[in-house]
Design a binder for these strands. Structure first.
Ligand code: SF4
Ligand code: SF4
Lengths: 145, 145
DNA sequence: ATATAATCAGATAATATTGTCTTAAATTAC
DNA sequence: GTAATTTAAGACAATATTATCTGATTATAT
């Protein structure tokens, strides 16, 4: 089971990381992405379409077509991707799923959890895709060479 | 969508909190629990059976039967419930779902995430059900009075 | 023209969630 | 002590959600 992010969102991030590893402006096909990352083609195709509509990616049809980042990797945060796919509910909702708790009169963990999700938020908004891929560059995370 | 914990796990925690609010030893029926918390009867029934098998709850059939905590609320941590239902994968797996990343040569967020899940772990293991319900006692989290 | 690759609609599969109904155990009323 | 009643246990079906696949169509480069 996935933690924090949905499967879709995980694939989105993996794909974006992979895209950002490529030379700037170079187009990368879905097939390339999904083969290397070993993730399902059509599922990813939909996700990338979605991200394209939301201007986070650009797409190009035809031979030697594919996807590239919609803007500089330095200007895309992890959070932007997550928000586009999963929304930001994971930073707002009750940890225990109580739908009606408005968190005045907070429970014993609310404050701690608040702090933690603040940290999560900080982590996701402070790291750009550029920084991420920099640290991944020469490594194999899933056969990425 | 649920965050961090599965729906099952959320219900388990809600039910346990509710049980712990009752006087020690008193039996509470599934119907009582699910009516008050407004959560599905049969789904919860299964979860409680599961927790009973794992000795976190005790059950009693027949009229005035029901469930009670398997041990003192002070001796049950949130983590024990979560572990029983969801396991501990959420503290171990890669945030991005990379199945083959062994995290030597960690990526740019790995350390931060490590720290955060350490905090999560601390939060879940340090809070007993007793402390939780103490802070909830006079509040309505979902119609609980 | 032809091949490539994204787009899109839709079916299918897998999983998670919820519901129906029967059975078994325990209590209470008689 | 037997019957009626209450409640958990359990098998199984139905639904919802998420994930994946099939097969077309459309755009574009050569
Ligand atoms: S106070 Fe506790 S129960 Fe209420 S929203 Fe915060 S974590 Fe959830
Ligand atoms: S180093 Fe990064 S990619 Fe690897 S397990 Fe840690 S978070 Fe995941």
């Amino acid at each position: 089971m996935s933690i924090l992010f949905s499967r879709q969102c995980e694939y989105a991030l993996q794909a974006i990381f992979y895209l950002a590893l490529k030379p700037h402006g170079e187009l990368t096909s879905i097939r390339d992405i999904t083969d290397k990352l070993e993730i399902p083609y059509h599922f990813v195709a939909k996700i990338l379409q979605d991200l394209t509509r939301k201007k986070l990616l650009r797409s190009h049809k035809g031979p030697s077509g594919g996807f590239s980042l919609g803007k500089s990797a330095k200007d895309i945060t992890i959070f932007q991707i997550v928000e586009a796919i999963d929304g930001d509910g994971f930073l707002k909702n009750c940890l225990f799923g109580f739908p009606k708790c408005d968190s005045d009169n907070p429970c014993s963990v609310h404050e701690q959890w608040e702090k933690i999700r603040e940290d999560i938020n900080k982590m996701l908004t402070s790291k750009s895709i550029y920084e991420m891929t920099n640290s991944m560059k020469k490594l194999q995370y899933n056969g990425i060479s």
